[in-house]
Design a protein around this nucleic acid. Sequence first.
RNA 1: GCCCGGGUGGCGGAAUUGGAAGACGCGGAGGACUCAAAAUCCUUUGACCUCGCGGUCGUGUGGGUUCGAGUCCCACCCCGGGCACCA
Length: 824
Amino acid sequence: MQERYDAVAIEGRWQERWRREGTYEIDNDDPRPPYYVLSMYPYPSGPAHMGHVRNYTFGDLLVRYRTMRGDGVLSPIGFDSFGLPAENAAIRTGQHPRTFTEDRIAELSSSLERIGAVYDMRRVIRSHDPDYIRWTQWIFVKFYEAGLAYRDSAPVNWCPGCQTVLANEQVLADGTCERSGDLVEHRELAQWFFRITAYAQRLLDDTADIDWPERVKNMQRNWIGRSVGTELTLPIADAGGQARDDVPPVEVFTTRPDTGFGITYAVLSPEHPRVDELTAPAQRAAVEDFRRSVATQSEMQRLSTDGRLDKRGVACGTSVVNPFTGRPVPVYLADYVLMTYGTGAIMGVPGEDQRDWEFAVAHDLPIVRTVQPPEGWEGEAYTGDGPSINSDWLDGLGVADAIERAADWVESTGLGRRKVNYRLRDWLLSRQRFWGCPIPMVCCDTCGYQPVPESELPILLPDDVDFLPTGRSPLNAHEGFLRTACPACGGPARRETDTMDTFVDSSWYFLRFADPANSDAPFSGEAAARWLPVDQYIGGIEHAILHLMYARFFTKALVDIGVAPAGLSEPFARLFTQGMIRLGGAKMSKSRGNLVAPEGILDRQGADALRLAHLQVKPPQDDVDWEDFGIDGCAKFLGRVWRLVTGEAHTGAPARSGDPTAADLEVDRGAHRLADRVTRDFDRWSYNTAVAACMEYTNELYRYVQAPDGPHGEVLEAALDRLLLVMAPMVPHVTAELWERRCGRHIHSEAWPAADPAKLRAERVTLVVQVNGKVRDRLEVDAAIGESEAVEQALASERVRRHLDGGSPRRVIVRPPKLVNLVV
RNA sequence: GCCCGGGUGGCGGAAUUGGAAGACGCGGAGGACUCAAAAUCCUUUGACCUCGCGGUCGUGUGGGUUCGAGUCCCACCCCGGGCACCA
């Protein structure tokens, strides 16, 4: 029993046992209450790095904790195994991405086991498995049939580094690719899209119902970007300035219809379809020059705020009519008006919009204020509240009222209608890459695009391909893959060679985990209804928009097409986003080459010490610097627990029996307080304080076993039991080993220790005595002390009397048993 | 510009309901054990004044509410993140 703590030997033995016994396998008919814990499935890039360790430690803690609480916990793991790194490696080495990927999966699996993370390994999902591809493609076809997947030609983001198009979500704010960092270009291409915009309002509204970090919900709301306004038509003016009714008017979108009397010009996006029609012959050359210069500009230049506005806009030489005043106003083109938002055209109100003000000054256009700026206003455009002016029937109204009145007028006169706009764009899912899930569509010259029939799924990637660093998917050169028959007419046809964005794979894998072996459907409604929504989802903040928005969209869409159960609306009931790990001030990542490999630590101090360090170093949601980790301190603490439990630390008198002393009872109460604290800390994701509570109690037990009169045998044993039980989810190996040595049982099959409420109340507490709010004395008193008794004892204190200066307090605030404040 | 977070010792952080600021760990100092070291165990560790008893100050800044504020209110500064010529 006195042998030293040998973490490495212990850990291997327990990991082997959990795997062999299938300890964390769970069946769909398990009688315990279902609880679904999921850590975001990893991209298999090789052995685990510290970010993985952090993610899977948090998830594993919860799996083991909820299991001890009596839940039937679903703890699955899978691999997001399609993606560019494997394909790039294939281009470099000639090795097929499948071989490469499966080797990386084996490495990652083994390192997850080495940190002690436990899963139901019967449920493993790999995105590139034919079985998973089949159902991803099946879902695509169902979406296509429901009108949720479509092909369209649109201005798209092209990453020259990745040689593929990207979704809007994959382009960073500075216009670069989130993967490669290359400057993204714009191209007009026909691509496949998912109609996520049809769900914009639901994706926005339902953020109210999910228990997610406010920060993440806020990011999603910003991304969806709802804007309430009015669509207004501006009639085209004839040579005399009168509205023409023989041609359709120009539509603009505005959030400020109240400023309509101040419209002094209108602006079209350079890409607006009616530019040619609305350009006067005299201006044609200038307009063409302008459009050409905009087309060659990068997104960066176009979005930059420098550059003079007169150079960034050009007059069309024609006019539209301001419907509020009935007077004609000139039409311009300007690069800052985007075709992808609103109607691609705006009304210019320089009095209430700073950018319009600058444009008006640059082009010598009139400025009419329609909101009275406050006294002493020296700025240019005034965007604040104030009474309407120069606005006829709106004059005197505040902005909010004027907006409503103006919108009513626009609707009643048939000039337009209220309109909600979203910033969210449809999800561009096609990628011109090989290592992804093939899009199950066939293109026939006579029938157009046709979905592959269900019976022919899955469409798999061929093995006999040559990887060339051309950026063209090798599928384009593979005749065997390319040539097929049209499902509709049977004539010759070509397969779609684009593959799906890997975010498609991760948009439904959490549903497949509920029913991973199903060969008739992606999952049964029954299995999904049992496990979904995921009770606790855990992952990195970097997925706040991308993956988490797509998965929400997929879940809602799958419900709408009758595949997922009707009651489900959100995939993840609770989300926890853990912080990133930095090294040398920069985010730890493979591309930066600043990874710290866990292997060395696992070999020396062991998985439990590493896990404990992750739990202890900082609140789990915070970013953390690797330099702050104290692995040695954690290993030292585990050694202390080991020696305490094995009796090596017991240097005081031998254990007693018989009636417990006051000190014994305090140690016993401490064990119950510990269980209570750790339970509440686990439930509120405060792992660092849970670790602190265990350390504190361990320190208390050291004093106890080293005291001259020795510990009470039964009290000590019960205290050690509780300490081990509450530590079991955090450091599963060492607690399992010590528990087995103590009683021969498996600690992870034991029940979570309940705290006896009667023992949570201390008998003696510290009464703080203040004079004028300053602490002057601390008295040990009975916890049941009454008000008058507390005041009496406070007034009896010598230290307190010194500060009362012989007088008596004017006022006494008593909060027994914690505080007496004497005010003089 | 708009919207979220955050700012506490030498360092990471704790303080759950307005009631002991600094739990726990790291780092530092001292001691025990040892021939010595490692390991281990114990004590101590916010700043300033004081031989000491003790006192004063102290949670980004300035005000306020309160018997009492890290916590609530107002104004501001700084750091991090999201959105943004979005009409």
